[in-house]
Each structure stands twice: as structure tokens, then as C-alpha cells.
Nucleic acid binder design. Sequence first.
DNA 1: CCTGGTTTTGGTCGTCACGACTGTTACCTT
DNA 2: AAGGTAACAGTCGTGACGACCAAAACCAGG
Lengths: 254, 254
Amino acid sequence: MTTKTRSQAAPEGYDPSKFPAFAVTVDVVILTMSESRLHVLLVRRGVPPFQGMWAIPGGFKRPTETLDEAAKRELAEETGVDSASLLAQFGAYGDPGRDPRMNVVTVAYLAVLREVAGIVAGTDAAAATLVPVSAALNGAIELAFDHARIVRDAVERVRIDLELTGIATAFVGPTFTMAELRAVYEAVWGVHLDGANFRRRVGGEDGWVIPTGRRARPGSTGGKPAELFRAGRLWKQGGPIRYPQTTDKGKGKR
Amino acid sequence: MTTKTRSQAAPEGYDPSKFPAFAVTVDVVILTMSESRLHVLLVRRGVPPFQGMWAIPGGFKRPTETLDEAAKRELAEETGVDSASLLAQFGAYGDPGRDPRMNVVTVAYLAVLREVAGIVAGTDAAAATLVPVSAALNGAIELAFDHARIVRDAVERVRIDLELTGIATAFVGPTFTMAELRAVYEAVWGVHLDGANFRRRVGGEDGWVIPTGRRARPGSTGGKPAELFRAGRLWKQGGPIRYPQTTDKGKGKR
DNA sequence: CCTGGTTTTGGTCGTCACGACTGTTACCTT
DNA sequence: AAGGTAACAGTCGTGACGACCAAAACCAGG
């Protein structure tokens, strides 16, 4: 933190020694892939304010824990998952009046999970659900507090990080096919990527993915069984796939 | 925020109704270019704890203002600048014990200023100074609290945003030369960029920069006077310059 | 067993962005 | 006026990347 620095100067109508008290909470935007679409986990509020409305899970930060630990704890309490594939802070929200009861500043985290099965089951089924982010973003589902904006910021963050981090691998399981990984990019960015070009970039020659000898069983529709990969070491330094430039003459980037 | 969602469930040794009180502060990392190097503004603490040490400016958030407003206010109080070229939130820090006096969660902002002259003069000259970020990062200057980490995160954020936002234009004045703009990239990234190629990318044909008829007066060392430009509209959608790929065989990105 | 459909996987090719390099212009200082 | 310096312009070769095509592997149904 830091107090006012010019301590000698007269505090202009404000006394630092009597600082205002805030409640600090941690909210977690839990994203996962389901049916080839990006989904967010929402819980139904059981108490006022906004009782009965959907919201993202969260809770008070405790004085003895770090923000990261608080986020991890909240994630575990809501989903039963003790360690997400990815859990990263992405913003703080403190507008006055965002909580009608008191002054609340919340720190928002983004969690990415694989294995949809069991997530909702881990909580009270009636109080937690997985909805497509499109429904949460276009207002089809009304969210409590300023959670609509928080979810929007989280998704925007994912879209950016997809290009420059290994966040894509957090959406898939420990082993995955090229098509599964490509589906993550296509769902988050809303674009179509050529399968052959995608394969060449990712499995080209470097350590993006490591082939396991095994193969996935083909879906009921037939087709050649896909090779199974594990994530390589290079993802820590940025992803291999770039957001496709519309290739139209204007070189406007994105 | 959001309270615990499973309100029926017994609160496991924790009562949400009596939430812990925190102090919430806003700290601002003020960056600017000076002598072709990236500098950060630091203030000397006049009160304990960490009295006499350097720190980044900041102060308590007031319940009636938003976080952005608090950051803007703190910036104005410290520098006299009423509107920075850029002011963006980039992180929250709430480790227990980061302030020995009490529970403090701080929200960190990044401010980018041009026109170094008058910034330090606007404050108490003895209490504020501009130091190269390298000195603050390598430990040559010891910072109070966890401000060393905050500054490091801020610089890392600038390095990333340089590639995908128009943050570079925030470092230069309303009119600038190609060399000035290029110096921003070279200083922040620590690389050398070819002047001719840089010019082609930025002034190529699009609306990155708009030529003003005028020319800058050459430095005392002679040389052709550089053309003066204004920032164009395209910077809002990402910058034209990419971090140079070392072009060595390994395609490791960054 | 054979055929059509589906999906993965490998191959080719043209375009163009980009970096390295060289050359020219315009202004300074002495 | 001469030399130096920095801005500005042109060229060229490499290589990344997208579009497209083709083969391989497997399933379902007849």
C-alpha cells in the first residue's frame, strides 16, 4: 500500500490514520469447454441481495491468506476441484455501490478447467450450472452485481492469452487430439482454422506437443482415429497459434 | 463480490456476516522515457514503516470513488498531471503482512507520461525522483513493501502491451519523430530495430501516423531534420511493431 | 465383403510480410 | 566548402503462412 507520501503537507481534508474499511472478496470466473463451446460456471444466489439470480462464485478474503490462496480455496469450495489447470488474477473491481450493503472491493480470478463431468455434480446441482458464455455476455442470463462485466473481461482475457500463453492446453485433458486442441481456438476466437495447417504449426518439429503412442477411439461417426498428444514444454513461452489476420489488403491488425 | 453461495450449508468455522476489514489502497507505477531509457517515478517515504525508503506513490481508496478515479487522483496529487497519456489497472496485491501495520490490499495502476520536465518539479523535489527501471529491478534501489515486485509486473505489462496496444504513443509527445517512437520500442524491449524497416511498417500506408508538415530541429550533432508526425487512429487496435523473433532456427516465440 | 462417408494426416504451392543491406538526401559543424 | 551525421528510400532473398488437394484409416450399412 503506502500512505500519503508528503507527510508534512497538510492532509487535504482526509486523515490517513482513519482509513476507510472495505470488505475484500475474491470472485472466480470458471471457464471450460463443453459441446465445442466455451462455458462459464454460475451459481444461484441463496441470500439477498440479488437473491435467486445467477452469479459467479466467490467469497471473502481472509486476513491470513494471500489473494491466490483465497481464489484457490473458493474454487475448491465451489467445484471440489483442488487444483485448476489455470488460475490467474485478471482484475479488481471497486465501484462504489457495486454491492448495496457495504463497500466491497473484489479481486477477480480466471480459472480454466478440463473434465466437465463432476464439476457441477460436486456442488449442489440446483445451485450450480454451466452456461455458454454467449448467453452470459449477450444478456440472455442476467447476472448479479457487476458480474456481467467481470465475465466479459475474463473472456476477453482468454482471447488475448490464447495467442501468447499456453492457456489453450488448460482446456483439454492431459492427453488430447489435434482436433480437440484446435476446437479450443475455434471456440474461443470464433474462427475456423485449417486442420492441416494447425497440425503443422503445433506438431511441426518443436516441443509444443509430445506424441504418446496411443490413439483416441473414433467417434460414432467413424473416421480415422486421432493420435493422442501430451502438452510439451514450449507452451510456457507463448502459444504457436496466432489470431488469423483477415488477409484483406488493409493490414489492420485484429 | 458475492457471499457464500451454499447459504444453507453450515459455515465451516467462518461467519460471512462478520467479514474481515481491509484497507484498500491504490498504487501507481509512473513510467516515462528519459535519456532514451525507461524511468519510474519514486517517492521517499516520510513516515514509518519503511521510513526513508523509496516507494511508488499511492494512497487510500475512498468509498465514494471508483478505483480508476482513485488512481487518477493519486497521480494528480503526486505529479500535478491531471490526465496521463495512459492509466490502466494491472494487478492487485494482498499478501498478508505486506504492510506490517494492518491488512492492506492494494490495486496497482500503470501510468505512462510524456514530458518529463515539470513532473518532479511539481512535487517536493527532495521527496520525488526519476530512476531508471533497471536500477529498481536489479535491486540497486531498495523499495518499500512489495513495490519491487509491483514495478516488475508493471514493466512486464508494458513489454506485452507494446506489441498489442498503442501504449508506445503514450511515451512520446503529441508530435514526434520516427526515431523518438522507435526509441520507445528499443528501450522497453531492449532490442535494436532497423530504422528503415521501422519507418516502412509505421508510416507505410495506413493510419498509424499522420505527417504534420513540420520538421524537428536536428540535434547538435547535425543530420537531416526528422519529419514530425501525429498519432493516427489505428493505434487503438494494436501496434504495428512486433517483438523481433530472433530468426534463429528454433521458432521459440520470445 | 464391399462401398460410401467421415476424420485424420501429409503434401504442394503461391503470396507476402519481414529483416538485412545498400544507397541517397538534407542538414549540421568547423 | 568539406566532412560528418542522421533521416529517408530502394532492393532482395528468406521463410512463414494460408488455401487447397490427396492419401490413409476407420466405421456403418448393405
